[in-house]
Design a protein around this nucleic acid. Structure first.
Lengths: 148, 148
DNA sequence: TTATTTGCAAACTCTTTGCGCTCGA
DNA sequence: TCGAGCGCAAAGAGTTTGCAAATAA
């Protein structure tokens, strides 16, 4: 495929650094990912990629997403619903809060929480390697919302 | 199917209370579940059920497991690996710690943790309905294990 | 040039479902 | 008796893969 320099992106740069062959499809997917700050599934990534360049198949999206995950560029998430969702790793470790009414996914982080989890693990004789934590909730009415 | 009173179990009793038709297959699956204190997937439940009574199909296990979940007898869990796993609801709300080397699933509970999570949700404007929390870890050497 | 990657379609895994027969109440 | 439930096999949904053609380096 012909190189399209307009599709250069931070993630494409990482691919180059890691020595991956930078095909047109990978460049396109890297571009789409760099522009996304949500948690798309493969189908959605495919839709966005095709909008940029129709010469791409969903099999390639699956393959690329796995490649990027293996290279630490993407993190796979599972919020239920039977499909994997992906987020870039460039904004660190965090947890998720999912609005059960709208499906909106929000990110949060909390040092006390991390410390507490590590402590619980240690007390049980384990070093915690990874944590999967998702809160599923409903928007509070303003009145009952706690002050920050 | 002929009734086999040896298969009576606490879960079968709950089925009766809830007015479900207590078929031989359901009785067998209820029995198997009452004897299990781990987190089997459908395949494993099927294996255990067939060992008790071979006249059972995996479709029935799927159907029964869903029925039991809808009736609050079972809770569906997803620890990755693409298959749902089930636990009885009779031992309350809790979290899981999974040994990444052996696959062993352990349960734990922590009031401070629950409070912290509820607080985080509230601060973000949400009432937390359900929480999914799994710690994946590696056994610590005795020496570095923290005192309880 | 040539080892990799891609597109396509078939295959795979887990789960659900349509249908005619069976069985519990 | 008779409607709910069962077994079977086929269908779905998401994901992976074998193979020949295309392509980046």
């Amino acid at each position: 495929m012909k190189t399209d320099d307009r599709l250069d992106s931070p993630i494409a740069a990482v691919c180059r650094e890691k020595g991956m062959k930078l095909t047109g499809q990978r460049r396109t997917i890297a571009h789409v990912l760099s522009e996304s700050d949500d948690h798309p599934d493969v189908e959605e990534l495919y839709r966005r990629a095709v909008a940029v360049d129709p010469r791409i198949s969903i099999a390639t999206v699956y393959r690329t997403v796995r490649l990027f995950e293996e290279n630490g560029i993407l993190r796979r998430r599972d919020f239920g619903g039977g499909r994997a969702r992906y987020e870039t790793t460039d904004h660190g470790d965090h947890f998720h809060l999912i609005d059960v009414d709208t499906g909106t996914v929000m990110e949060f982080d909390d040092e006390d929480l991390k410390a507490l989890l590590a402590g619980i693990g240690a007390r049980m004789g384990y070093e915690v390697a990874t944590t999967r934590l998702e809160l599923y909730g409903r928007r509070l009415k303003k009145k009952s919302r706690q002050a920050i």
